[in-house]
Simulated scan of single mutants.
Amino acid sequence: MLTPRGAERLEYLRGLRYGDVVTGVVVKIADFGVTFVELGGVDAMMNIPEVSWRPLDSPADVLREGEERAFTVLSVEIAEDGDGRDRISLSLKDLHPDPMREFARDGLGRTLRGTVTKEVPFGVFVAVADGVEGLLHHDVLGGLRPAVGDGIEVTVTGVNVVNRQVRLAPARPTGS
Rank of each mutant, 00 (worst) to 15 (best):
V25I: 11
A30W: 07
D31A: 14
G33H: 07
V34Q: 06
V34F: 00
T35S: 15
F36G: 05
V37G: 05
L39Q: 02
L39A: 02
D43H: 12
D43I: 10
A44W: 02
A44I: 05
M45V: 10
M45N: 11
P49C: 09
P49D: 08
E50A: 09
E50I: 03
V51D: 05
V51I: 08
S52K: 07
S52T: 03
D57M: 13
D57I: 14
A60H: 11
V62R: 05
L63C: 00
E68D: 12
E68W: 11
R69M: 12
F71I: 08
T72E: 01
V73L: 03
S75C: 02
A79V: 11
E80R: 14
E80K: 15
G84A: 08
I88P: 00
S89T: 13
S89W: 05
S91R: 00
D94H: 12
D94A: 13
H96E: 13
D98G: 06
F103M: 01
A104T: 10
R105M: 11
L108W: 11
G109C: 10
R113A: 11
T115K: 06
T115C: 01
V120I: 15
F122P: 09
F125T: 02
D130I: 12
V132A: 10
L135A: 10
L136W: 07
D139Q: 13
V140T: 10
G142E: 04
P146M: 08
P146W: 05
G149W: 06
G151E: 15
I152D: 02
V154T: 06
T155G: 11
T155N: 12
T155C: 06
G158S: 15
V159Q: 05
V159T: 09
V159G: 00
N160D: 15
N160Y: 15
V162A: 14
N163F: 10
Q165F: 11
